[in-house]
Design a protein around this nucleic acid. Structure first.
Length: 812
RNA sequence: GCCGGCAUGGCGGAAUGGCAGACGCGAUGGACUCAAAAUCCAUUGUUCGCAAGGAUGUGUGGGUUCAAGUCCCACUGCCGGCACCA
């Protein structure tokens, strides 16, 4: 018989699904909340580079899951769209003059074509692109809500600046001191910026991680990034100055060990602290620190540097005078930008004290050590950073670190010298970009009213047309040069005013796109609240780990703000998150053009068909783990499909199968049902292969078995399944055929194999009827000829019997 | 340095504490063929043995258990994230 003509059949069914709107999702109240599922892929940036076989991995997985859910009576929302603002299209525009929208939409079309041939069951009627005005109208609207709640503010603090991208970057976009996008060294720049106050949500972003079903590593990364720490703020009087110097420490129990203090070069008190004698040295140091890049400043290997201010702080616990230094190892952006230095119990302070000959006093000793008993000790050899017992701390000696922390914090509060404090590593989110191809910020600078947001009826504020996309490089976006656009009137008072010219970062559009899919054409709200209630939260969200602290943190933040203003029904957007593993090249390296190991899905589909590619990508291993692509391996999936195609020619019997084949059928249904629900597609496919191989051994095919098999194949190889389903005389799509059920009783075998072990080593096996009792099983085991042989000259110490499984003789 | 994750045949992988290696790729042998491809059948962890049958085996070293790939402790290697956050 002819080979499976996938190149005819696959387009045929793709056209059918499209023409019949088979996967259109409708908010039908007949489905109870428990019978609705929102299954979401992380939407792509439509780059011009084209896809490799790794890109569709997650899309195939969610598609199979959605098809499985539909056959099980769920109403499924499964949309797709495009994260369409971004630098590549803009950079191309600078080079060629082509409008970024032109490039972007061309790439979107190409992308849709490429994933279209995979037979993915998206509701394309809900497609959105973040760069269209009807979409970013609502991005702007949400930004205004943030602004109105005081969560967006202007800042002039120095920021991360990428000299190549010519724009500011968020902390999350800087990796190892380099731009996450282009790899250029990030520098510091002081320009006016818009910042979102994500730190106001730090506690909730941390606590609510406990509510969601996400991979632990991703939760750990977010917890790390938020970086909550508990400690105390301590106020140090400064000799000869009215101002107090406030420091933050997680170890208030080491206050007696403080021997000097350090403030960051950018600290506001630096000039007041500097005595005339130190003035020259201090200016030189501050200037040198300002010139250093972030990477230079945070390089651990470098020597500590610093400069004495000439001033002294007074330690509130013992009145001791502590010299105040400045050093760039203290960061202005964390805590109070000033520290008390305890060299005996902190590696960094230790290194600094050693370099500058500052005293070192040990105030914590390991529990049980002699020092802990007598309350004092000699000079330490290295910093001791663990917890222990207080020494050299006056009346506090002998307390454990934990007890001392609590006691001294209370003492500080009682004496007015400080208080317990919680700190976060998370910084506010640098939100403005000095580029063209992004959402314009819907704000106006009015000389009378200050910064005024546009009114709702003035949205969207569309991007002006221009011919010059190049950034000015001086911290202004190209929009600043478009005078007719910049000059406007104040929405509130009507006076002449100027528009904000910064644009939003690419993350803005992706912060809420999952909500727009719910009601994509609504022009009165970002989404109708009843529809939000119908679908939200997202039940399953599949994408790569690269967004663990970027998109996934930002989106949670925006969602919580929307929750707080009553616009959404849940305080977390994504209930369950799954990270698909990376598809590596055949050489086990990351797939990339520069390595020359890229495999194009179009080529594979051309040779083997989309169903074979889908099947193979899922068969290769668990969804979550990274694995290398092997083109040679795909023939296994292809052969399986060919076998099904050939089997469809066999004569059919109406009777169900009998005996072992019936049992295998029910077991397979059980296995494939469980595995499909758990996204364990590799083992489900394996079970389908076993069943088809067994069923194929007979000359004739049982129709009930064949129908069940086709339905189970449906989500995995939908084109072939539809074709063979139609061949059976079915007129409706298999996409909504009822998923086959199984009978647990029919899964069980009448006979069980019992294995016999001697001291845990396998020696024999035999068959027993199911329901054989414990004693009977042991008796039959003893009668087994090989067992008798092994028992000769041995003494039985113990017999372990697991009914239906094994008998283990422990012998001597 | 800190926090995660992973480690099983030639390869991808499978295995509620109970027959390690399901399923697939590859390889070897055979059938079909003038021949090849395709297809089908058989074998395929390593090792000793003509065979029957042994021994050994899930990164390393210990431990718990009648029984450990699976649980516990200590390592090693690889991958990812963070990194002067006081």
């Amino acid at each position: 018989m002819a080979k499976y003509p996938f190149s005819e059949i696959e387009p045929k069914w793709q056209k059918y699904w499209d023409a019949n709107q088979t996967f259109r999702a409708v908010e039908d109240p007949a489905f109870a909340k428990a019978k609705r599922r929102y299954v979401l892929d992380m939407f792509p940036y439509p780059s011009g580079a084209g896809l490799h076989v790794g890109h569709p991995l997650g899309y195939i997985a969610t598609d199979i899951y959605c098809r499985y859910l539909r056959m099980n009576g769920f109403n499924v929302l499964h949309p797709m769209g495009f994260d369409a603002f971004g630098l590549p299209a803009e950079n191309y525009a600078i080079q060629t003059g082509t409008h970024p929208a032109v490039t972007t939409f061309a790439n979107i079309e190409r992308f849709k074509k490429q994933i279209g041939i995979l037979g993915l069951s998206y509701d394309w009627a809900r497609e959105v692109s973040t760069c269209t005005a009807d979409y970013y109208k609502w991005t702007q609207w949400i930004f205004i809500q943030l602004f109105k709640r005081g969560l967006a503010y202007e800042s002039n603090a120095p920021i991360n600046w990428c000299p190549s991208c010519q724009t500011g970057l968020a902390n999350e976009e800087v990796k190892d001191g380099e731009c996450d996008r282009c790899g250029s060294k990030v520098t510091r720049k002081r320009i006016r910026q818009w910042v979102l106050k994500i730190t106001a949500y730090a506690d909730r972003l941390l606590a609510d991680l406990d509510k969601v079903d996400w991979p632990e590593p991703v939760k750990a990364m977010q917890r790390n990034w938020i970086g909550r720490s508990e400690g105390a703020s301590v106020h140090f009087a400064v000799d000869g100055l009215s101002e107090k110097l406030e420091v933050y420490t997680t170890r208030p129990d080491t206050l007696f060990g403080a021997t000097y203090m350090v403030v960051a070069p950018e600290h506001p008190l630096v000039s007041k602290l500097t005595t005339p004698a130190q003035q020259a040295a201090m200016s030189a140091y501050v200037e040198a620190a300002a010139r250093k890049s972030d990477l230079e400043r945070t390089d651990l290997a470098k020597d500590k540097s610093g400069c004495f201010t000439g001033s002294y702080g007074i330690n509130p616990v013992n009145g001791r005078k502590l010299p105040i230094w400045i050093s760039d190892y203290v960061l202005i952006s964390y805590g109070t930008g000033a520290i008390m230095a305890v060299p005996a119990h902190d590696e960094r302070d230790w290194a600094f004290a050693r370099k500058f000959g500052l005293p070192i006093i040990q105030v914590v000793a390991p529990e049980g050590s002699p020092a802990a008993r007598i309350g004092t000790c000699g000079d330490p050899d290295e910093a001791f950073c663990e917890e222990g017992i207080a020494i050299n701390s006056g009346d506090w000696n002998g307390l454990t670190t934990a007890a001392f922390k609590a006691a001294i914090t209370k003492w500080l509060e009682d004496q007015g010298h400080g208080q317990g404090t919680v700190n976060y590593k998370l910084r506010d989110w640098l939100f403005s970009r000095q580029r063209y191809w992004g959402e314009p910020m819907p704000l106006v600078h009015c000389p009378k009213c200050g910064i005024v947001p546009l009114h709702d009826d003035q949205l969207p504020l569309t991007l002006p047309e221009t011919t010059s996309y190049a950034p000015s490089g001086n911290g202004e976006s190209p929009l600043a040069n478009i005078e007719p656009w910049v000059n406007t009137t104040c929405p509130d008072c009507g006076s002449p005013a100027r528009r904000e010219t910064n644009t939003m970062p690419q993350w803005a559009g992706s912060c809420w796109y999952y909500l727009r899919f719910i009601d994509p054409r609504n022009d009165r709200a970002f989404a109708d609240r009843a529809k939000v209630d119908y679908w939200m939260p997202v039940d399953l969200y599949v994408g790569g780990t690269e967004h663990a602290v970027l998109h996934l943190l930002y989106a949670r933040f925006w969602h919580k703000v929307l929750f707080d203003i009553g616009a959404v029904n849940t305080d977390e957007p994504f209930q369950r998150l799954v990270n698909q593993g990376m598809m590596l090249g055949e050489d086990n390296q990351k797939m990339s053009k520069s390595r020359g190991n890229v495999v194009n899905p179009d080529d594979i589909i051309g040779e083997y068909g989309a169903d074979a590619l889908r099947l193979y990508e899922m068969f290769m291993g668990p969804l979550e783990v990274s694995k290398p692509w092997t083109t040679a391996g795909i023939v296994g999936s292809s052969r399986f499909l060919e076998r099904l195609w050939a089997m469809s020619e066999k004569p059919l019997d109406d009777a169900p199968p009998s005996g072992e084949l019936l049992r295998l059928l029910h077991r397979t249904i059980r296995k494939v049902t469980e595995d499909s629900a758990n996204l364990a597609f590799n083992t489900a496919i394996s079970a389908l292969m076993v069943l088809s191989a067994e069923a194929n051994k007979a000359e004739r095919l049982s129709r009930p078995l064949w129908e069940a098999l086709l339905k189970m194949v449906g989500p995995y190889a939908p084109h072939l399944a539809e074709e063979l389903w139609q061949k059976l005389g079915q007129t409706a799509s298999i996409a909504y055929a009822a998923w086959p059920g199984f009978d647990p009783l029919l899964c069980e075998s009448d006979e069980l194999t019992i294995v016999v072990q001697f001291n845990g080593k396998l020696r024999a096996d035999f068959q027993v009827p199911k329901d054989t009792g414990r004693e009977e099983q042991e008796r039959l085991a003893r009668l087994h000829p090989k067992v008798q042989e092994y028992l000769v000259g041995k003494e039985i110490v113990k017999v372990v019997v697991v009914p239906g499984k094994l008998v283990n003789f422990v012998v001597r």
